[in-house]
Design a protein around this nucleic acid. Structure first.
Lengths: 252, 252
DNA sequence: AACAAAATCCCGCGATATGGGATTATGATG
DNA sequence: CATCATAATCCCATATCGCGGGATTTTGTT
């Protein structure tokens, strides 16, 4: 299996820092023959995944926009969480996020914002480190043991750097303490000057699936208020979890 | 070239009406061997384009969300139009849309909404018929002659049904009249009870590229107000066009 | 019309994609 | 834990086609 991988590798070149690629640069990066690459690009362009951007350059294409809309409208997790998230930000100025695991990161898959908009650079479609920020930690603290081991052994320095522990037992103890709190609170871990409050959402199989969080546009939030926000977020996360388990049961 | 097409054909199965596919149904639809299809699905899943949804079912995956975000943040057309669109809906209750050609339809690629939210079923990522609605007509009226001929000859009934003309000369005359107005106004053509006002955006090559429009949540809008809105939309569309031409010139 | 660059076509052979059977992994149940 | 059914992966030889550099055509600019 080579050809299909190579074609998908073309799409993998596009990211926030390199949103547009010239033909020759793609060819050089992927060590591809000219004819072969023109063939891949023609296929991807015809399918809408790439779009010509002039001067033998290409950008990601409209089919992606269309497919993202399909996800937004039909994804069961998003549909279950959305009304709760809308209600959350009715009461609290901030941005409510639904995030899920994606590779070794956490991806925001839905966002609801109060009318008081403020700058947050964590929005739908944005992937973030798994080890920082409430939305991520709410997922990490429920990681299955073997997965956690594997991850820790792969990047111990990152765990230490994030203040999560220098050893695996240390890490486990910290995550256990977080779990017992039910929800996570962080300040300025991802975005300066904000407070994150997040709780876990589980899938039908009982494994960690996502997190529901709110980003408040301030730090130094009074404990009583944090408690109230945390309880609300936890409550709503549990509703989503229950809906997922019920929804899956009904589909069988 | 067969294998890559077949793999992309898997992704083409997913739409709003069929957001989730079972393994056997994909296999039956695409007349694919089991091993082959498992291989495709593994590749697409590993790359993030598909996600397992339980019971041998799959949905579109997180990489799409991520790539859509990349488009949203980096696409030059969207970036140029966005501030103008934000300003438009500051003055007018409604939904401002940026739409572009996509196959034989028109796709909404960006949306700005005033705080007074109302139901519109035309949103970012949603493709619409090329022959109905202001956003579409603003593009159609500037279609190059040969393209228009080809399209008309492919579906004359649709043009007649949309009230655009029974013959090609008739159609051309109507589109010419629209062009001379500078912008297009439609009522309830796509969504009941709304008025659409749209103007064309051209690319650096002078060809029609997109349309900028606003959807007002009412019909029977007084002519004077329509005139003012139309002028504003046209002005902003011209700014985007000029910015595109300038932007492309600067990049050379 | 001239020219340069971009994109497409050509072609034969070596690489690999294929698919059905065999095997392994997984999840549910008792 | 054992059993069983189903889902997913592996195997393999052969049929298919993907490859890439040169040739050719198309496109855009002057």
């Amino acid at each position: 299996m080579q050809s299909n991988e190579r074609m998908l590798a073309v799409l993998d070149l596009f990211d926030l820092d390199h949103p547009e690629w010239r033909f020759e640069d793609i060819a050089a990066r992927l060590s591809c023959g000219r004819s072969t690459l023109y063939r891949y690009i023609k296929l991807l362009t015809d399918a809408g995944f790439l779009a010509p951007a002039g001067d033998s350059s290409y950008r990601l294409g409209p089919r992606i926009i269309e497919m993202d809309h399909q996800i937004r409208v039909t994804d069961p997790l998003i549909r279950r969480a959305k009304p709760l998230m809308s209600e959350i930000i009715r009461d609290e100025a901030g941005i409510c996020l639904l995030c899920r695991r994606y590779r070794d990161r956490v991806l925001c898959v839905h966002e609801e914002s109060s009318t008081t908009r403020f700058l947050s650079n964590y929005e739908r479609g944005r992937a973030r480190p798994l080890l920082r920020g409430a939305a991520s930690l709410a997922i990490l603290m429920h990681f299955p043991a073997h997965r956690l081991s594997r991850l820790f052994n792969r990047m111990p320095d990152e765990f230490a750097g994030a203040g999560l522990g220098d050893t695996l037992p240390d890490l486990r103890a910290r995550l256990k303490a977080m779990r017992q709190g039910g929800w996570v609170v962080t300040e300025s871990q991802v975005t300066e000057g904000v407070t994150g409050v997040a709780a876990p959402v589980f899938g039908a199989d009982g494994e960690i699936l996502a997190s529901l969080s709110i980003t408040l546009p301030e730090t130094g939030v009074p404990p009583a208020r944090l408690q109230a926000v945390g309880k609300r977020i936890l409550f709503c996360a549990r509703v989503v979890t229950a809906a997922s388990q019920q929804g899956d049961a009904e589909e069988k």
